[in-house]
């Protein structure tokens, strides 16, 4: 079975950067946000690597990545991601980060997917992260599916296999560290991935060169995509408070330390 795998993947500021919330004329943002290096959202990254694995095992399958973010940042991030696997980029030049409205984002992504030439919903598997590393709203993929009319949706997916009869066998995370296994007869479906089980593929520069020859013109022509700034209002934004309490101990058994930590967590 050949699938049209479409991965929705956004950008996130490099987590090692100083992320300081500030108020901008258009709402909350990060200090010097456009100057911060970005990475491909790690949750979406898992989805992409799983897509590559599925495409490899299902001959004829294709991968397209739909990404919304500032054009220059998309280009910067693709310099790395494009070296991992062959895919086509559909770039939407618009705001990224953690303060965008999930409803508007889902509309932009769904519209872009629906407009892909040759898009065949019956073969479509819409992949993405189950949440993002920026704000973690965890709702975009469901809304993308709804807008596209795809109602078979799976969240926090860790594994996907395809039965010989073409059915999708999907393992989703549920409460208590357990998985729920579902069987979906066929595409289309939305899969919002948790971590999956695949490592980051090694670089392959030749793949990167081939990808970028196509992506660079696509980035130049990226469709300007405006989101509704009034769609969401934030009362307050702040980083989680960091506290450090240090106590010097010596020769305490590891079990005692673990017990103390567990007791502290239970408080």
């Amino acid at each position: 079975m050949a699938y049209q795998i479409i991965v929705c993947g956004g950008l996130a500021p490099d987590p090692l950067q100083t992320l300081e919330p500030v108020t901008t004329p258009t709402g909350p943002g990060l200090k010097n946000e456009l100057m911060l290096p970005n990475v491909f959202d790690p949750w979406a990254g898992h989805a992409l690597y799983e897509a590559a694995n599925l495409a490899k095992n299902q001959p004829g399958s294709t991968i397209k990545v739909v990404s919304l973010g500032p054009k220059a940042k998309l280009q910067q991030v693709m310099m790395t991601v494009a070296q991992k696997l062959p895919f086509e980029l559909i770039a939407l030049d618009g705001p990224g980060g953690g303060f965008t409205d999930a409803v508007s984002v889902s509309k932009a992504l769904a519209d872009a997917i629906a407009a892909i030439p040759g898009f065949d919903k019956s073969q479509a598997l819409i992949f993405g992260g189950w949440e993002s590393a920026t704000r973690g709203a965890g709702v975009v993929m469901q809304m993308v599916g709804e807008r596209l009319g795809i109602t078979e949706q799976f969240l926090a997916v860790d594994e996907l296999t395809v039965d010989p009869d073409g059915a999708l066998v999907i393992k989703e995370r549920v409460e208590g560290g357990k998985h729920q296994i579902s069987k979906c007869a066929a595409a289309p479906a939305v899969l919002a991935w948790a971590t999956g089980s695949l490592p980051e593929p090694p670089n392959h520069p030749q793949t990167g060169m081939a990808n970028m020859r196509v992506m660079m013109p696509a980035l130049q022509k990226a469709k300007p995509t405006a989101l509704d700034p009034a769609a969401i209002a934030y009362a307050q934004v702040a980083l989680p408070a960091v506290t450090r309490q240090t106590r010097i101990v010596k020769d305490v058994p590891a079990a005692d330390i673990a017990a103390e930590i567990a007791a502290w967590i239970k408080q």
Binding site: P37, Q76, M79, T80, P205, M209, M212
Partner: peptide
Amino acid sequence: PGDDIRQLLWRFSDRFDLQMLVQS
């Protein structure tokens, strides 16, 4: 100064092959 500045300073802002190389 980030990559965008360095690419201009050292004149490879139009060379995506080199930009990819730098990242890898």
